[in-house]
Amino acid sequence: MTPFDRPPVGMNLGRTAKLVAQAFDAALVEAGGTLPVWLTLLSVKSSKLANQRELAGMIGIQGATLTHHLNAMETQGLLTRRRDPVNRRVHLVELTEAGEAMFETLRKAALVFDKRLRVGLPDERLAEFAQVLAVLRANVES
């Protein structure tokens, strides 16, 4: 068997990641959200009074892109932003009641999707898969 008898690992991983991401986004849309909204809500929820720079880093997007998402989410009543009293250049982001409710709705959708994704995979195989992913990440980071 030659290396060209099967798709390269990176190509297979890329195709799979794209398909899974599209299906996850569709599940979030069906629940009334989007992937950027979910990632933002999750990041704000996991770090009380996060500032915008920290949020952008947690989500892995540029500050300007985050600002666009935060503006829309603030208009929808999902979160509030206020100046940090210690450093007026920093905006602190908090979820509103509507944001908390949307977080819970999207959390449930994410859990249902994760359960669907894991069908047929025993815990041992998932643990092994997580190790393989860690090695792949380490290989591209070095």
Rank of each mutant, 00 (worst) to 15 (best):
M1F: 11
T2Q: 09
D5C: 12
R6E: 12
R6W: 09
R6G: 13
P7T: 10
P7W: 04
P8T: 04
P8D: 02
P8K: 05
V9I: 12
V9A: 13
M11C: 14
N12Y: 15
G14Y: 04
R15E: 12
R15M: 09
T16W: 14
A17H: 11
L19E: 15
V20W: 10
A21D: 13
Q22F: 08
Q22N: 14
A23E: 13
A23G: 10
L28H: 00
V29D: 05
V29T: 10
E30V: 05
E30F: 08
E30M: 10
A31T: 06
G33C: 03
T34Y: 01
L35E: 04
V37G: 00
W38M: 03
L41V: 05
L42Y: 11
S46P: 03
S46Q: 15
L49W: 11
A50Y: 00
A50I: 02
N51K: 08
N51D: 12
Q52K: 14
R53C: 09
R53Q: 14
L55K: 02
L55I: 07
A56M: 05
G57L: 15
M58W: 09
I59A: 02
I59P: 01
A64N: 15
T67E: 13
H68I: 12
H69L: 06
L70G: 00
N71F: 06
M73Q: 05
T75E: 14
L79I: 02
L79Y: 02
T80G: 03
R82M: 09
D84G: 05
D84N: 11
D84I: 03
D84R: 03
P85M: 08
P85V: 10
P85Q: 09
R89N: 15
R89W: 14
V90Y: 05
V90W: 04
H91W: 09
H91A: 09
H91L: 11
V93Y: 00
E94T: 04
L95Q: 05
A98W: 08
A98T: 09
G99A: 03
E100V: 10
A101T: 11
A101F: 05
F103N: 00
E104Q: 13
L106R: 00
R107H: 11
A110N: 07
F113Q: 00
D114R: 15
R116Y: 13
G120T: 02
G120A: 04
L121G: 03
L121I: 10
P122Y: 10
P122I: 04
E124H: 14
E124R: 15
E124V: 09
E124G: 07
R125M: 15
A127Q: 12
F129E: 10
A130Q: 13
Q131N: 08
V132Y: 04
L133M: 14
A134F: 00
V135S: 01
L136P: 01
L136T: 05
R137K: 12
R137L: 10
R137A: 07
A138N: 02
V140M: 05
V140S: 03
E141R: 07
E141Q: 11
E141P: 01
